[in-house]
Nucleic acid binder design. Structure first.
Length: 270
DNA sequence: ATGTCGTGGACGCCACGA
């Protein structure tokens, strides 16, 4: 199974590139973030023509997540129990079961600044996500199959796990995305039994995001903030993982590149 | 690094978010 995650920064603005990318890369499952569209405006027919079903959670111009699948799409849940809001819950998480694997697409809040209430929101959101995932990873979710669950949490975490995941750690003094508090939240999430699937570094860089401004992509000044976190059975099935830097090039790209993971999983129960 | 995008209101620019 080919699994991918991509913050597209508006599915409508990115539609030609998204359709071309789906046709070329043919993931079985694609997690999308920042679709920036209400469900009624999502290009379901266009992705449907390429063989994809779509699970949608979007409310308008901000946020928005989705899961596209041509490997089945069952038990769709929008948001999660206990999800904090700002002040109301936003469209930042959706989950579904695809080919026996529980798949989450998440768009973690951007903390904005160290003194911003959005950083507190980000930390609280991550803590709540962890509590929502805990029973699923323990195989105690309703309808869960016996044994270790197959589960992936994919998305834009807006956190660089280590200093190697930013172009220059010194440039991040006083910034979010690299603070001990944010990294601790992500570490707690991993401690539930998830592994950060490391993509092959391309051109020596592990980055998945480059700001549009100041020629950051051209200068190699990026960050790795888009992650695939996998439970043990999925991690064991990883055959390859890479960042599609090509999708960040040319005219009209998203500021994020897709992360693609190839899995070789027994199709039997899990 | 603060140089660009995307959205949408009430526009032919601005505010906001990233």
């Amino acid at each position: 199974m080919r699994l991918a995650t991509w913050n597209v920064n508006s599915v409508q603005a990115r539609l030609p590139r998204l359709l071309g990318w789906l046709d070329e890369v043919r993931p079985d499952v694609l997690c999308l973030q920042e679709t920036k569209v209400a469900d009624s405006g999502f290009p379901s027919a266009e992705v449907g023509e390429l063989g994809y079903q779509a699970a949608l959670y979007g409310t308008g111009r901000w946020n928005g997540v989705a899961i596209l699948s041509r490997a089945g799409l069952d038990d769709v849940h929008r948001g999660f129990d206990g999800e904090p809001g700002f002040p109301d819950p936003e469209a930042r998480a959706i989950s579904a079961t695809c080919a026996g694997c529980r798949v989450w697409s998440v768009y973690v809040p951007n903390g904005r600044a160290l003194d911003s209430p959005h950083l507190d929101y980000k930390l609280a959101w991550l803590a709540a996500l962890r509590e929502a995932l805990r029973p699923e990873l323990a195989g105690r979710a309703p309808g869960a199959a016996a044994g270790q669950p197959r589960l992936v949490v994919c998305g834009d975490f807006n956190i660089a796990l280590t200093d190697a995941d930013v172009w220059d750690p010194a440039a991040f003094g006083g910034s979010t995305h690299v603070t001990p508090a944010e990294r601790a939240e992500l570490a707690e999430l991993l401690a539930l039994g998830l592994t950060d699937v490391p993509p092959r570094a391309l051109k020596g860089q592990p980055f998945t995001y480059w700001d549009y401004r100041a020629g950051m992509f051209h200068k190699g000044m990026g960050m790795r903030i888009d992650l695939v976190l996998a439970s043990a059975p999925v991690t064991a099935a990883v055959k390859d993982a890479y960042i599609d830097r090509e999708a960040r090039k040319g005219k009209g790209p998203s500021d994020h590149a897709p992360v693609v993971v190839d899995l070789e999983m027994d199709p039997a129960a899990g």
